[in-house]
């Protein structure tokens, strides 16, 4: 079980959260995109081995979405941060940097 630091509620059990995969994927203008660019937005998310900036929602707590650095090899937890704020740097250099944002 991961212990996840909700920026609003503090450390809580993973079972109180839902996962939202890659953080920082901006919603594009669908009319401005080709089919393959749209497919990329719709279906392709980063899947790095190492530090990953990802989204979580604290559904059984404050109900809010936030972003989190987490290591996909060690399950180490890094910084949590709010959406639409500047992304903090990936902790350490133990893996690839994760986010496209």
């Amino acid at each position: 079980m991961l212990y996840i630091p909700c920026p609003h509620c503090g450390l809580c059990n993973e079972t109180e959260f839902h996962y939202g995969a890659e953080a920082g994927v901006a919603y594009p203008d669908p009319n401005a995109l080709t089919d393959s660019e749209w497919a990329k937005y719709l279906h392709i998310r980063a899947n790095p081995k190492g530090w990953f900036a990802e989204r979580w929602v604290h559904f059984a707590g404050c109900g809010r979405w936030f972003n989190l650095w987490r290591n996909t090899i060690t399950h180490e937890i890094g910084l949590a941060y709010l959406p639409f704020t500047t992304q903090p740097k990936a902790p350490g250099n133990t893996g690839q940097e994760g986010s496209r944002a």
Binding site: M1, L2, E14, T15, H18, Y19, A21, N47, K49, F52, E54, R70, T72, I73, T74, H75
Partner: peptide, 13 residues
């Protein structure tokens, strides 16, 4: 498990 991982282990819950 709900999250991405390469750790070849899952959660007890």
């Amino acid at each position: 498990d709900a999250f991405n991982s390469y750790a070849q282990r899952g959660s007890f819950h």
